[in-house]
Nucleic acid binder design. Structure first.
Lengths: 153, 153
DNA sequence: GTTACTGCAAACTTTTTGCACGACA
DNA sequence: TGTCGTGCAAAAAGTTTGCAGTAAC
């Protein structure tokens, strides 16, 4: 929820425009799914988005949320984040960035850092394929899990 | 399958020993699952391991494979790899390393590189939690997918 | 007015669980 | 021999799909 209002607006705008320009209809349901995914920086899964959207569109169905997110991902407007086992999670931040992943609770936060952006694929990787992006995952224990551990001891 | 025989032996040995030392029984089924995961560097999913093991232990059940891998992962002897959507995949290489991920077919290969090992978490990450490891994902298109594309055009 | 989208329901895939029998230490 | 692990079956969790009605353009 820490995404600045201006950035949320920009994302909703970009997403809405791109849907229209792809000849797709901007339905009430799609708009609300777009709003929800744009406003979150917690890399929510489909169920979480579904529950949030249902507050405003009580009749929306889970499979519409699945379909909308698949559509958006297909257009490259949101990204599937595969950093933890379990349900697929989505990220509306399509700029190049990195992630902190809590191995205990599954929390994922974006990490923006010039130093990490500068990491380049080694030459040896060329034998595997063409590298299109380099993403760094910082794996560890988040502050919340540390706090819980201290409190429970 | 490109894991050197010596390394496979070492892995099977470490895994077997660790199971015993944890007071767990080294059953026929567990041993074969261990062998299978140790011999692969393709980050197989449970179903794949199941099919391979069933060649040698036709009566083994899928849920035993699930349970064995969960046990091994719990002991830190194998790692869940969450780099692609779909079924969870396992990696018997517990040394610090990086991955090349094909965004088209889901292929995952290990990448060993000193330069990538040297990447450090930025100071800013401390506000998110304690970073225990830094893993680099090289995302792109593998040589096989490139070849297929050329052949189909 | 078309055509694409939605909601419902059902199917499918992946993973987990309860229980009784069998096998390891 | 006692206990842990296995296989079977069923359930739970996550995701996809077909179809008929509805709404966007």
């Amino acid at each position: 929820m820490a995404v600045p209002a201006r950035e949320v607006r920009r994302r909703v705008d970009v997403l809405s425009r791109a849907l229209r320009e792809s000849g797709l209809r901007l339905t009430h349901q799609r708009l609300e799914v777009v709003r929800e995914v744009a406003r979150s920086d917690e890399h929510p899964d489909v169920e979480t988005i579904y529950r949030a959207v249902r507050e405003r569109v009580p009749t929306i169905s889970l499979d519409t949320v699945y379909r909308t997110l698949a559509t958006l991902a297909g257009l490259g407007l949101v990204r599937r984040v595969a950093a933890t086992p379990g349900p697929t999670r989505y990220d509306a931040n399509t700029a190049h960035h990195h992630h902190f992943v809590c191995t205990r609770c599954g929390l994922i936060r974006d990490v923006d850092d010039r130093g990490l952006d500068a990491v380049r694929a080694p030459r040896s990787a060329a034998s595997l394929g063409s590298v299109e992006s380099v993403e760094v995952q910082l794996r560890g224990i988040c502050v919340d899990c540390h706090k819980k551990e201290r409190d429970h001891d």
